[in-house]
C-alpha cells in the first residue's frame, strides 16, 4: 500500500525530536482533560511496581553484599572497618541504589511497555481504540507514565532498604556487628541532603522510563519486527536518559547541597 520514501537522516532526527515534544505536551494535556482512568492506573501500578519488586529486591540485596565484600579489604587496610556501614549507606542511597534500580526498571518496564504498545499498534488495537472515539493516550499512555513516575521512586526506596540489609548480612560474614549498631550507624550517616536529591531524581528516572516506553511503543512501525525494535529501543533510550538525568542531578545537587 504505502511506499516508503527515503528521508535524509537529519530530517528524520528532527522529526523524531518534534514528535517527542508533541507527545510530551499531549501527555500533559491528557492528564487534565477528560476522566482519569483510575482502574487502569491502579492496574499499571500493580504491574509495574509489585511485579518488579522481586527483581529489584534480589538485585539490591546482591549489590549490598557485593559492595561490602569489595569495600572491606580497602577500608580494613586503612584501619577504617568501622566506616563500612557509613560508606555503604551514603554510596548506596545517593547514587548506586537509584541508578542501578532505575536501569533494572528500564530493562524490565520500558521494554515491556514498548513491546505491549508496539504489539497493540501492529494488531490495530490502537487504531481500534481511536476510531471507537476513546482516547488511547488517556487510557494507555497517561496511566503508564504516571504509574512509572510513582512506582520507580517507591521501588528505589525499597531497593535501598534491602541493599542496606544485604550489606548488614555481608558485614556479619567476617565481623560481628549487631543489627541495632549497624542501623544506628547507617541512619546516623545519612542526612536530608543525601536522601532527598536521590529520591527526587528517581521521580525523573521513573518519568523517563514510562515516557520512553510509551513513545517507542506508540510510534512503532506496523510489522512484527517493529515490536522487538520498539522494546529494544525503549530500553536503550531510557537507560541513556537515566545517565543524562543522573549527570544533571549530580551537578544540581552539588551546587545546592555540597558547596
Amino acid at each position: 500500500m504505502a511506499e516508503e520514501i527515503a528521508i535524509p537522516g537529519w530530517k528524520k532526527w528532527l522529526e523524531g525530536i518534534g514528535d517527542q515534544v508533541e507527545f510530551f505536551f499531549k501527555f500533559f494535556r491528557n492528564i487534565f482533560t477528560g476522566g482519569f482512568e483510575w482502574s487502569e492506573f491502579v492496574r499499571q501500578c500493580y504491574e509495574i511496581g509489585y511485579r518488579s519488586m522481586m527483581l529489584v529486591g534480589i538485585t539490591s540485596f546482591i549489590m549490598g553484599v557485593v559492595l561490602i565484600v569489595q569495600l572491606r579489604p580497602t577500608l580494613v587496610a586503612f584501619g577504617a572497618a568501622s566506616m563500612l556501614p557509613k560508606t555503604l549507606s551514603v554510596s548506596f542511597i545517593r547514587e548506586i541504589g537509584p541508578v542501578i534500580i532505575a536501569i533494572i526498571c528500564a530493562g524490565k518496564i520500558a521494554s515491556s511497555i514498548g513491546a505491549e504498545l508496539g504489539s497493540m499498534k501492529v494488531t490495530e488495537q490502537l487504531d481500534a481504540m481511536e476510531v471507537s472515539g476513546a482516547n488511547p493516550l488517556q487510557y494507555l499512555v497517561v496511566t503508564r507514565i504516571l504509574a512509572t513516575t510513582i512506582m520507580v521512586p517507591i521501588l528505589s526506596v525499597i531497593g535501598d532498604l534491602i541493599g542496606l540489609f544485604g550489606g548488614f548480612l555481608a558485614l556479619n560474614l567476617r565481623d560481628n556487628m549487631s543489627f541495632s549498631l549497624y542501623f544506628t550507624k547507617v541512619v546516623g550517616s545519612i542526612d536530608f541532603s543525601d536522601f532527598l536529591p536521590a529520591f527526587v531524581k528517581t521521580i525523573f528516572f521513573g518519568f523517563a522510563i514510562g515516557f520512553v516506553g510509551c513513545y517507542k511503543g506508540f510510534h512503532s512501525n506496523k510489522g512484527t519486527e517493529s515490536v522487538g525494535i520498539a522494546a529494544n529501543s525503549a530500553v536503550v533510550t531510557a537507560s541513556l536518559w537515566i545517565f543524562v538525568i543522573d549527570a544533571i542531578a549530580v551537578q544540581v545537587t552539588s551546587l545546592l547541597f555540597y558547596k
Binding site: E124, D127, A128
Partner: peptide
Amino acid sequence: RIKIGFLFQSGALYD
C-alpha cells in the same frame, strides 16, 4: 466516530 463503527481485518480486540 461514535456514529461510525469500524471492523478491522484482525478484529483488533484488546488482548
